[in-house]
Nucleic acid binder design. Structure first.
Lengths: 222, 222
DNA sequence: CGGAATTTGTCACACAACTGTCATGGGATC
DNA sequence: GATCCCATGACAGTTGTGTGACAAATTCCG
């Protein structure tokens, strides 16, 4: 059965979430602090983590970062604030999705399902985005059935984006994950995204797959 | 030749799919109902099944479940609705992939390729790559029908690549698997690849089978 | 056993491909 | 309209790969 870990300090909300999740067929358990959440996830990993941002002690952002360090579990943020900054910061910390309280349980459930679907797709050796296909194993990129020659860096970049398809990755995240740079000029990412577009987009000036989210980063989509 | 069964009640869409699939090099045939599809698949199994969800009589979901009962064939759902519930239900019924109508045939083709890759079985006794043939058992390599004399190291290298045909193998991996070196100069691989090319490639400078993926490694393809 | 032939691994060089930086200009946002 | 953000082309430095030469190791064969 699919397990969900809920990290939320407000008892009433946490209990309500747990009940609703069990109603939906998940095995759900909750903790009230980030520290306990980390411990729990290490000892008995859940398939999903729901987390509030404002927590006593370690806050949600830091908790997400630490979770991400040793786990690729899908993380959904549940926050009271519908603030762009929070959303961006949470996604940059490594969250996969963001919902605003009060949470419609049906919506939450749909989002979990969507994540599961995406996760399943991510597990296969080859990913398809419309007329674009990325095969990490074959070291191959196809566009409209044709193999496109891409460089190693472009390939890594594309794989990284494909692995988190549909989700924005900031320039900083890409710099860290693709290049391993903790710091550095983010324009570097732009350049390589540009070059990649020349190869995999029909009309590089109007990208369909590798799109820019101004101020946020890049995203790969169908 | 790879056969595809299309289960779709709309005559125009079905015919269009069949034509497009044959264009792509598949042997395709179609039926209009789930019942007929099940019968057909039992009597003359195809390698892939494409299925619409909304069908007269037995619906797509039930059809998928029944197909799954006695067959491990990859099933791709073709639906008009881009609805999370449908997608989840179809995948849970046993489908392998889901595309939304109108279907871009290139995308469909790519998805079929992806499925084939995922489901590919292990090594076979003799492998053919166009005009290149490798028989590990006979200890022979043929190029254009002619037996080519290769050295033991070259042969091992070629077998290793053939066993993982279509996948990139890094120099390090090859060094480990062919030579048994945990560490060592990776240029060694280059040299042997070069020598192998002299023997099995029409034009060693422009290899068709034993290709380089810069920064990644080498790959054997047809 | 001994010499010849073959195979193997190392090295160095050359060339092509790739990478990252910079500057410029276009577009979006407020 | 000012500002910020992003796309893109050019360029020099770097890296990766192919290849020929050569010596050591191995195999072949009389």
């Amino acid at each position: 059965m699919t397990a969900v870990l809920v990290i939320e300090d407000d008892d009433r909300i946490r209990l309500a979430l747990l009940l609703a999740l069990e109603e939906e067929g998940y095995r759900a358990y909750g903790v009230a602090t980030a520290e306990e959440g980390l411990r729990r996830q290490r000892s008995d990993p859940a398939e999903y983590v729901l987390i509030d941002l404002m927590l006593p002690g370690m806050d949600g952002f830091e908790c997400i970062r630490q979770l991400r360090r040793d786990d690729d579990v899908p993380i959904v943020v549940i926050s009271a604030r519908d603030d762009t900054h929070d959303i961006v910061a949470a996604l940059e910390a490594g969250a996969d999705d963001y919902v605003v309280k009060p949470v419609a349980i049906k919506e939450l459930s749909a989002r979990l399902r969507a994540l599961r679907r995406r996760g399943r797709a991510g597990a296969v050796s080859s990913q398809v985005f419309g007329d674009l296909e990325v095969s990490p194993e074959a070291g191959e990129v196809r566009h409209g059935g044709q193999v496109v020659p891409v460089t190693r860096t472009e390939f890594r970049l594309l794989c990284e984006l494909a692995e988190h398809a549909g989700r924005v990755l900031s320039r900083r995240q890409l710099l860290q994950r693709v290049w391993g740079y903790e710091t550095g000029d983010e324009r570097l990412v732009d350049v390589h995204v540009g070059r990649l577009r020349q190869k995999i987009e029909e009309d590089p000036a109007n990208p369909r797959h590798l799109v820019t989210l101004r101020g946020l980063g890049y995203k790969l989509q169908r």
